[in-house]
């Protein structure tokens, strides 16, 4: 311990202690957005475009006096189905290729990619650009250092996410929100079920404190975005 301070008064001790503190702070872990509270009634709904009120039908001989033509629901842009191949998020330095399929296991849980250096997509959802919420997940770190989504927590609203698809098209999404949720309160409905009226994306990784006794982070960091025209 070469930084042990000598006894030269409080000022010297303080300097030594600060050196020690800084020295021990190898790093503070991955960036973490503020923790969201998932109360049953106060779940933020950052992503879903307002659901159009069901246009009351005036098909055929509806006796309704309001004979205006049915309004076209605004569902935003969409793309045909095509599986994602490459993910680019320039603002946080993500460029990852060969995305892998993620299938729900017999236990109902969506496993992460087995390879820390690879991102994966949820096969049970829409492909990126189709109507609904496409889900892409990757590790924040591996056993020995940062992984694909290490900087996901740094993402800011307005950041662009580019997904190159198997058909060669690139789906570009704009991030709307980024939030951190305790895993015990994972916002399942917000992630998988809330995008009923436009094409959206969810990017998922881990965050918060790392619990060494379980070998898991205690939170998930989730970015929500929508498809650009």
């Amino acid at each position: 311990m070469s930084s042990l301070p000598s006894l030269h008064g409080r000022r010297g001790t303080l300097a030594g202690v600060l050196t020690l503190v800084v020295g021990l702070r190898a790093h503070a872990g991955p960036p973490a957005p503020p923790l969201s509270r998932v109360a049953a009634t106060s779940v933020p709904s950052p992503t879903d475009a307002p659901t159009d009120p069901p246009t009351e039908l005036q098909v055929g001989q509806s006796p309704s006096a309001t004979a205006a033509p049915a309004a076209e629901p605004d569902l935003g842009p969409i793309l045909p189905a095509s599986i994602p191949v490459t993910l680019d998020i320039p603002s946080i330095g993500v460029h990852t290729t060969n995305l892998v399929p993620l299938n729900v296991g017999a236990d109902g849980v969506l496993p992460p990619p087995t390879d820390y250096a690879t991102a994966g997509y949820y096969t049970g959802g829409p492909t990126p650009g189709q109507l609904g919420a496409a889900v892409i997940a990757a590790h924040v770190d591996g056993k020995s250092g940062p992984a694909v989504f290490y900087r996901l927590g740094e993402l800011a609203p307005g950041a662009l996410v580019h997904v190159t698809r198997q058909d060669g098209t690139v789906a570009t999404f704009t991030i709307d929100t980024i939030a951190r949720y305790p895993k015990a309160q994972f916002p399942t409905q917000l992630v998988y079920g809330s995008a009923t009226s436009r094409a959206e994306i969810r990017l998922i990784t881990c965050g918060g404190a790392y619990d060494r006794s379980t070998g898991h982070y205690v939170d998930n960091v989730i970015a929500f975005g929508h498809l650009d025209p």
Partner: peptide
Amino acid sequence: AAPVGAMATGGGGAAAQPEQGLL
């Protein structure tokens, strides 16, 4: 049904150091 629960997307290799214990 949507997948159950959270995702285990970290190996801990870049986690914050347990600084309080060391301190």
